[in-house]
Computed example of a mutant assay.
Amino acid sequence: MRLHTSLVFEPSTQISALQRHVDRLKQNPEVAALLILACDANGYTPANLDPLLHACTKPVLGGIFPQVLHEGRAWSEGVVVVGLSRAPVFVALKNLSQHSGFEETLDHSFNLSTLPAPHTLLVFVDGLSAHISSLVEGLFNTFGLEFNYLGGGCGSLSLQPKPCVITPAGLLQDGALLVLLDYPSSIGVAHGWVSISKPFKVTSAQGNTIHSLDWRPAFEVYQEILKMHGDQHITPDNFFSIAKAYPFGITRLDAEMVVRDPLTTRDQHIVCAGEVPTGTFVRVLHGNQHTLLQAAQRAHAVARQSWAETQSHPHELQFVVDCISRALFLEQNFCQELAAIHTSGPMLGALTIGEIANSGQDYLEFYNKTAVVGFF
């Protein structure tokens, strides 16, 4: 059975335009659920979107992102609407920032003995929640490599917290949505950022906020590194415009460093997209157009090769999760990254605040500034 029966991009930001697609698809007997990827600029809120979600007789699942992807193009307004041919099993989690462990909750989420293999778990999470990495760790501790995982952080480029995870019960803030599809997939992950500093020990951190590096204020250390590299003068006022080119890298054994995107600074602290645990070692990274485009090509090649090795039929759909900060960094050259990722067939996806994926068969991480390519 096909994964989807309908895939459309609606350029209008109006709820009424989305309503027309939802009404059409819920009347289609071949559609069992709806997947929606919407742009933050649409202005969807609980007040205008929740009535639509509550009234739909089929589950509506997805998220609101800085931009969405459709057929090799990035859109800052509009919505991608997909009619899924089989109803997925899904779980919505609330108040992520109030949790420190997720294993017990996740252990009761899915009854794997009743579900046919193979599985792919889509994970949509509020990208500004404080415990995303803890959720990802809980997923791996609970389910291991039972699934392929693919997803990312919902939210706004304004970095203002707001409801952004779409569930049948309504829009969620500080929440997550786990959508289990019984379809095969292949995943490729790469980022292309390289180290420009020695390793620094994170001597104090809480959640996604780094307080100190090598027992010194984190922002002070970060300023010194950027001053030595390219004579960059970073301040609280110009922080995001410069920091987008200088992420942190957390060292992982036998794998690419996991990138953490610095979002803002407060009181000499640095707030990142995703946790940076106390006691880990980080480096400051930098990249250029060439290294990032090479990484996107590598992610696509890995996903394509994995599909060819495990499946005897062509893939039906490409699902891409790419970091919004890669688009901001590459600017007008980001179209080249999309061209490297999208080669043939239907494509959808989102530019996210952090990416969730397993690389090959060994790792599950919450990434930043990373390109993730999935074949279904």
Rank of each mutant, 00 (worst) to 15 (best):
T264A: 15
R283H: 15
E256I: 00
L226W: 01
G230R: 06
P217M: 03
F240I: 10
Y222P: 01
K244L: 15
G175Y: 02
A205R: 00
V221A: 01
H286K: 07
A245K: 14
R216H: 11
F248S: 02
K227V: 07
K201P: 03
V259Y: 09
I196E: 09
S204D: 10
F248M: 12
V179C: 07
Q268H: 12
K198I: 12
W215F: 15
Y222D: 01
D174A: 05
M257Y: 14
D267T: 08
A218C: 06
G279R: 09
S185I: 03
T278A: 14
E256C: 01
K198G: 10
V258E: 08
F239P: 00
N208W: 04
T235C: 07
G192M: 11
H191E: 00
Y246I: 08
L178E: 00
V179W: 01
E220I: 12
I242N: 06
E275K: 06
H211K: 06
A255S: 15
V179M: 08
E220G: 00
K201N: 11
H269F: 10
H191M: 05
T265V: 08
A255L: 12
L226S: 01
A273F: 11
L263A: 11
G274L: 03
I250L: 14
K227F: 10
A245F: 14
L172D: 02
L177H: 02
V202I: 09
Y183H: 09
L253T: 12
Q223M: 04
C272M: 11
I196V: 14
K201D: 07
P262H: 04
L226M: 06
P277G: 13
C272R: 03
Y246Q: 05
Q173N: 10
K244I: 13
C272I: 09
K227P: 01
W193A: 01
V179S: 01
R260I: 07
H229M: 10
V284I: 15
N238V: 09
R252M: 14
H286I: 04
A176N: 02
H229F: 14
G188P: 10
M257S: 11
P199K: 13
H286D: 12
L285M: 15
F219T: 00
A190K: 04
P217A: 02
G279D: 12
E224Q: 15
I250T: 11
Y246W: 11
F248P: 03
E224T: 12
P199E: 15
V202W: 00
S186A: 15
E220W: 13
R216A: 08
I234R: 01
Q206V: 12
L213F: 04
T209V: 11
T235A: 05
D267G: 08
P236Y: 09
A255F: 07
W215E: 15
K201Y: 11
G274W: 05
T209I: 09
G274P: 07
V202N: 04
T209Y: 00
T280Q: 12
V282F: 08
S241L: 13
G230I: 07
E256G: 00
L172Y: 02
E256P: 02
V271A: 07
I196C: 05
F200H: 03
E275V: 08
L213H: 02
E256W: 03
L226T: 02
T235Y: 13
P199T: 14
